[in-house]
Write a protein that binds this DNA or RNA. Sequence first.
DNA 1: TGCTTATATTAAGACTCTATATTTAGTCCG
DNA 2: CGGACTAAATATAGAGTCTTAATATAAGCA
Lengths: 410, 410
Amino acid sequence: MSQTPSPGPAGSSQLIRQLNAQRVLGCMWGREPSTATELMHATGLTRATVLTLCRDLTEQGWLQVSENSRQAGQYTKGRPALRYAFREDACHVIGVDAGLHQVTAAVANLRGVEIGCATRPSNPEGSEAPLQPAPERRRTILDTIDAALAQADLTHADVACLVIAVPAPVDSSGDSPKGLNAFWGLMNPELISLGAEHGWDCAVDNDANLAALAELDLGSGAAEDSFAVILSGERLGAGLVMDGSLLHQSRGGIGELGMLDLVQGVESSNGLGWWARHLAREALKQAPGHAGPLGAVTPEEVTSEHVFAAAEQGDLLALEVIDQLADRLARICVVLAGLLDLDRILVSGAIAPALTDVAARAKHKLAQYLYAPWLRIEASALGADAVRRGAIRLAVDRIKDQALPGAPGA
Amino acid sequence: MSQTPSPGPAGSSQLIRQLNAQRVLGCMWGREPSTATELMHATGLTRATVLTLCRDLTEQGWLQVSENSRQAGQYTKGRPALRYAFREDACHVIGVDAGLHQVTAAVANLRGVEIGCATRPSNPEGSEAPLQPAPERRRTILDTIDAALAQADLTHADVACLVIAVPAPVDSSGDSPKGLNAFWGLMNPELISLGAEHGWDCAVDNDANLAALAELDLGSGAAEDSFAVILSGERLGAGLVMDGSLLHQSRGGIGELGMLDLVQGVESSNGLGWWARHLAREALKQAPGHAGPLGAVTPEEVTSEHVFAAAEQGDLLALEVIDQLADRLARICVVLAGLLDLDRILVSGAIAPALTDVAARAKHKLAQYLYAPWLRIEASALGADAVRRGAIRLAVDRIKDQALPGAPGA
DNA sequence: TGCTTATATTAAGACTCTATATTTAGTCCG
DNA sequence: CGGACTAAATATAGAGTCTTAATATAAGCA
């Protein structure tokens, strides 16, 4: 009596089956079709085992046999091998960059390739109107998703996972702290519930964290590196990757940069875009009738784009601003890389393409403050796409983790 | 042909056996003796399985049957259960705190209980002589180890693992960076090789990191918390624990606090002990003939102990110093906790017992700079023992991880 | 057609855990 | 002192996994 613990019929022997199935699927995920022989080498399992696993995975919808057995001329002798291919369209995911001023949603296959994308304005820039209330923002996001789905010619039923990026800290349950900062609550009005309403797996996360995931995906060869991704438009935010995995915490406050208020020469968590505009404005006021290209706009009209464009043309005043931005960035890097011994720091976000020069100068200035010759400071190649790409990456990862047991649908 | 991958006789079926064995051993490690029934509940396995695993583990030397079957009056009816007990003396470990001024070594059993401890001076305090050369320092450490072993009445053959803590960053291969800072090389002169010379498993790590491990061991209930441990004697160093696991990196520079040079109101990585002395000295020079207890010593003689003792007695000048220390500490906490969203910050090291008041004041001042009401700032209860305890903890952990397969000796 | 080659399939063996029945070691009680 | 009672230990059978080795298959090539 009293001898029926919990596990089902034949106990934990199936556990190892699942582990192996996951290993095989992991070897094939997003990659070229493989033969059993290749998988044997990759997994260390026997041919018999690999083939039964592949058959199971095919039945479940994760794989399909691709007929081009001996194609690619890998060999010509002997019986042609079965080739199994990863079904990148077994199901689909949605990644949303729900920014302050605009919402972008993309539908992607399991390889992370976007097959539909749409953008909608939200809290139009320059407008002085109060921020969108929660229901309106939720509707905007859903509309954007539907538009992206329509473009991909898919329906709600084809979607397995939704990930939304918001410019706010997000805790482990998907909520953003309220009360302290009303902005955060308006950026993330219970967005996590959007998934449940449609029966999708769903996650909400901070935009900088997701941008970091996107950079991790590009993977500079070594998967072991540690880096920070700084989102730097109007306000600063960072995502931290240590040893190839994103730092997370239940309150979701990792990478908040409010503490920069205390750092000499930084003194605020305003972004580089904000500072470019601010510094240029002040400088123009000091030097009315400035002769360079930047003199063409009034102090009130000047934007960060003006500054970067003028610097390209050699405007001395703009170059001085660039230099100050670089010093600011260098100091931020000192704090992050000094404390965490990072390998590199990436500046990302929409203005990243304009910051390659700033990053290079920051790298140069860094040596004044910190000995870290290995540290790379670079502008992200992803730019405005980083956040959305990261959302997709996380969505695909979630599917991957839940993969076994069960078919792609469930 | 070509069908013999690598695994041995019956393949990866034994893997699950090992996993289960490790689970059982993990359930018993350092805890009270258990019966099969208890282990069934803990592991979810069947009685038959648990018993065979226990028998195997007993043969390997990890467990032993304790005869007091029905002792403790847990029940009186039925056949008495076999009770298996963890053999805390299956082998032993050595933890060494190889500080600048003194070396402390302790021998501990697998429960982490010290059964022998010894201390030797190294680079005597106050002396102006150059630092010990490498061979001498290695000899000092070995002497200390031998003394601890002698006290425990054990020999080299009883030791399975050695962990050494040094006041320097340590990379993943156990080396400290040379050239840049000669001090580091002298603190860690290839200490990792001491293990191989005696056939012990060996690790070298940064002292602050190990202090963090020791605090983790105390475990405030929730194993999920994130905190920093600040070692704060002459120089500052920190160990970072995120979500219950220590942050590490191949270069070993995590927790180096050189970047505090850039933080307003901190401006250096000198420790709180250094600052207590320095501030008191300056203040005494400013106020010659100071009436309070602190006036009893000359500016040149004053030490941090004097300051804390005088503050206890209400010396106004000392209290002013305490207040400045608290502000400094608060700012350090802002940087660490703001960036990493920590749950608590512990000040550890030899002077920790004197810093309870400083920590409390820092917590109070923190609100000026950062909203983090959940953050606790406390002085560690471990004090001067923290580093050594952490070294022991790491050594025991290493044994635990290597535990299966094989007997404790191997 | 037959030989060669590389793969797929199948059956047997070893190992794991579970499930159930049986034995054992005690206490308790008449 | 012997017999019920109880809870644990043991023994046996069953289902599951992987590997191993033998066999079958699908091509190319002479």
